[in-house]
Write a protein that binds this DNA or RNA. Sequence first.
DNA 1: TCGCGGTGTGTGGTCGGACCATGTGCAGGG
DNA 2: CCCTGCACATGGTCCGACCACACACCGCGA
Lengths: 243, 243
Amino acid sequence: MLRGGYSGPVRTHERVLAYLEEGIAAGRWGLGERLPGERALAEDLGVSRPSVREAIRVLDALGIVRPGVGSGPNAGAVVIDRPAAGLGAAVRLHVATGTLPVRDVVATRVLLESWAVAQAAERATDLAPGAAAHLEEARRLLGRMEDDDVPAAEFLELDQAFHLEFVRMAGNVLVEAVMTGLRGAIGGYVAVGIERLPSWPRTAARLRAEHRAVLDAVGAGDAAAASAAVKAHIEGFSREAGV
Amino acid sequence: MLRGGYSGPVRTHERVLAYLEEGIAAGRWGLGERLPGERALAEDLGVSRPSVREAIRVLDALGIVRPGVGSGPNAGAVVIDRPAAGLGAAVRLHVATGTLPVRDVVATRVLLESWAVAQAAERATDLAPGAAAHLEEARRLLGRMEDDDVPAAEFLELDQAFHLEFVRMAGNVLVEAVMTGLRGAIGGYVAVGIERLPSWPRTAARLRAEHRAVLDAVGAGDAAAASAAVKAHIEGFSREAGV
DNA sequence: TCGCGGTGTGTGGTCGGACCATGTGCAGGG
DNA sequence: CCCTGCACATGGTCCGACCACACACCGCGA
């Protein structure tokens, strides 16, 4: 299943991968449960342990399982769900190869996030369950960013959490995962961009004001204004930081 | 870099992964070039070959390298770029775990694709380079779908290619990769949905008409109409197929 | 009886070595 | 000059071993 279209001699670890994927899809191993041990899997499938390990390594990289040593409930390959891990790694590496321009990443982020805040604004109007809590958390994060003494690195973390709050509020798990992955993938570029700014305090002040505008628009249920605000916010910063 | 935030004892294959990622990002191994052999890497980094293999296996799963046996230009781990491979696998597996609802996948597809056709419409108006070729290819695919004898499976492939043409026309590599991955991830669900339709020929006729509407809107440079058409097209089908 | 520490056991992590299949490039023979 | 066949490099697979770790159990002492 992992090889797109091409059908040839299937490598052993791919057979293991297919077996594990089938079992996960069938609910044989649900979230939080443990896969059989590597040795047991190898024997069951009639393959060697290294082949099993390679398959599990792939699931690990994709954020599907979390290997744990020792014994007890935290040991063994536990099925988890960290969609952002795999997506983020994939995006970051493809940026590294040079075929995925940072410009496209930023444009995609604008697209996803402007949609998300619009959804969030509608949810705020509808008083959807959880919406108020997300808004409150966003306010709290904004408050912490108001402190002039907060270092740039921490500001960026708060900024990321702030943005993520609206994406969560939109209620689309996939969009949230992709957003998280994108942010992680371009985190390095952002950090570099910060250092090139003419004046960080001045930029920080502007970012705070823009955050406030987004928060107010979402809180007021004005989807169009929220989308426009977040679009201007992201594009403005990326232009200024020269990414 | 692949472990989100947590910093503990770094596993050996992650060191290899970091080394390879750094090298790729630095252009030490560009697209189409070969990584050092597994044995050489193991010796250079002072690790065992299985550890190197696990790292390469991850890059393989993410669509960054393509391992090739034998000798010559096609042998060894060649740096390629298949963004859709990793993204598609990640999405499909997270759908399998059950935390990523198909509904969210469909909604994301609507979001990305309606944006893409809007971009495509603008490009058609601007006579951007390549736009005409994409439009021509879309027309050709639509023509092949007109044949009533074409089986459902092939129709789906043509449909996928048709949609992808506009996404390519939009000119965002990341959106194109995510779209391809999404389509691959839900391909199975779509195929199942087809079989549940009351009447495939009737549905096919409607899909053809909707495709025509999208194509015309893009060709006319009407971004809003194109977006609305593709949104109705995707949501209508997914509702009818009951995914 | 209760608390505590040592030990047993199962887990992933790593390593070294071995053999196989495959595809290329080269050298030798025709 | 062409073609055949061998040598070699490469990834694919497997085996066996040992380590570090973390929990679970058991026996000892208070």
